[in-house]
Amino acid sequence: MTALYEVHAVGFIRLAVIMLGDRPVAEDVVQDAFCGLYRRWHQLDDPAKALAYVRSAVLNGCRSHLRARIRAERRIVAVAEQQAASPEDDALLAEEHAEVLAALRKLPARQREALVLRFYLDLTETDIAAVMGVSAGTVKSTTSRGIAALGRLLRGEL
């Protein structure tokens, strides 16, 4: 378990950072995912699929966190303020990249997830459909709408 974490943790943290824009939260999500794997290790029908399990768990964790942000905003918090990358994070990214990521994080959660799976992890539509639990057609339409919305955001039309 620990060896698996040492090899793959950074990759999963990177995925969560892209989804959430928040390194500490991303680390928590990945920690939780591996803790879940630890608890369920004996239930995995094929330990070789552990990484796929963790990836699903990380994405679920990101979804849950995004929902929690919305719930928090319903209480009090300004989500946009939270979702914006920190100044420290901004300093590490070129302005162009920061602009794209800020636009990405304004998309609805499912569009954001589909785009990250497609254009960061380079998963196929079939794989994305399996991960998201939707049809390949839904992946295609979600990705298409997400790219269109991202373009409009970057052009300042939204």
């Binding site: 950074v10 943290i13 990177r14 995925l15 950072v17 892209i18 824009g21 390194r23 991303a26 994070d89 590490l92 990214l93 070129a94 162009e96 990249h97 920061a98 794209v100 990521l101 990405l104 785009l115 990250v116 254009f119 960061y120 790219i147 991202l150 373009g151 970057l154």
Partner: peptide, 17 residues
């Protein structure tokens, strides 16, 4: 847009050393 997204995502990823 797709290329810009790919580049931005990878740039964000490498901030995690």
């Amino acid at each position: 847009v797709e290329d810009r997204l790919r580049a931005a995502a990878r740039a964000a990823a490498i901030t995690v050393g």
